[in-house]
Amino acid sequence: MTEIDQRVPAPVQPPFRSFTGVIGSAIFVSRWLQAPLYLGLIVAQAVYVVVFWKELIHLAKDFNHLDEASVMLIVLGLVDVVMIANLLIMVIIGGYETFVSRIRMDTHPDKPEWLSHVNPNVLKVKLAMSIIGISSIHLLKSFINAENLSPETLKWQTIIHMAFIASAIGLAYVDWISARVAAINNH
């Protein structure tokens, strides 16, 4: 017998297995459809950089003509833009890393600390906390500018803010329970 004749023939795959393999591969590859979404968020972040600089230039040019409350409102607006930019970074990097592909920044000196242990639950809690921070800034701006807003508006902004806080507490609790169950199952 020749060497070719002595080889074991490859097992024949039933047609349904190759079909399910193609479907599974297509589903797995479909995660790359999210990549343009993350690139779009990078564009949105660039827009926020422009908004930030426009507001900062406005503050620098007109600070002699602004009262303390107006300066505070502009500064809170700047903080708000920064917090939204931070939220975008968490969504872009964390979402891409979690749902699309590894970024492979393990040896990079500027690797964000939170990226080493990011998973969907951690990302949800971090996003919820960022949303609470952003909502807090908006609520503070509203209270500073209360004389120009109706009591009904302030009431609903406060209720919505409290709903964000309750949601974040619920997410953190679910994450805590999940971690406890995982720890019990690993022992």
Score class of each variant (00 low, 15 high):
Ile165Asp: 02
Thr153Ile: 08
Pro151Ile: 05
Pro120Thr: 04
Tyr173Gln: 00
Trp156Gly: 05
Ile103Arg: 06
Ile42Thr: 09
Ser178Thr: 08
Lys126Val: 06
Asp175Arg: 11
Ile177Leu: 11
Met72Tyr: 13
Arg104Ser: 15
Met90Leu: 14
Asn121Ser: 15
Ser70Pro: 02
Arg7Ile: 09
Ile57Leu: 13
Ile103His: 07
Leu139Pro: 04
Phe63Met: 06
Lys155Ala: 14
Met83Arg: 07
Ser116Gln: 12
Ile84Arg: 07
Val50Ala: 08
Phe28Cys: 08
Leu139Tyr: 05
Thr153Arg: 13
Lys124Asn: 13
Asp67Pro: 00
Leu171Lys: 05
Asp62Pro: 01
Asn86Ser: 12
Leu59His: 01
Leu37Thr: 06
Gly40Met: 08
Phe52Leu: 02
Leu66Pro: 01
Ile27Ser: 02
Ile57Glu: 12
Lys155Glu: 14
Ala60Trp: 07
Arg180Pro: 03
Asp67Leu: 02
Ile84Asn: 02
His65Trp: 13
Val81Met: 00
Leu56Cys: 03
Gln45Ala: 13
Asp110Asn: 15
Leu41Lys: 09
Val49His: 13
Asp67Lys: 13
Met105Leu: 15
Ala46Thr: 01
Trp32Val: 12
Val125Lys: 06
Ala44Pro: 06
Phe143Gln: 15
Lys54Phe: 07
Arg102Lys: 14
Ser178Lys: 13
Ala168Phe: 00
Lys141Cys: 04
Leu139Val: 06
His161Cys: 03
Leu59Trp: 04
Phe99Tyr: 14
Pro36Ser: 03
Pro9Cys: 01
Ala166His: 09
Lys126Ala: 12
Ala85Lys: 07
Ala166Glu: 06
Leu66Ile: 06
Met90Phe: 09
Pro14Met: 12
Val8Tyr: 06
Asn148Asp: 09
Gly95His: 04
Ala85Arg: 10
Leu140Ala: 14
Asn145Tyr: 01
Asp62Gly: 10
His161Gly: 05
Ser70Thr: 10
Tyr48Thr: 06
Ile27Gly: 00
Lys124His: 11
Ala46Leu: 11
Phe19Asp: 14
Ala166Tyr: 04
Gly40Leu: 11
Ile42Arg: 05
Glu147Gln: 10
Ile134Asp: 01
Asp106His: 13
Ile84Thr: 03
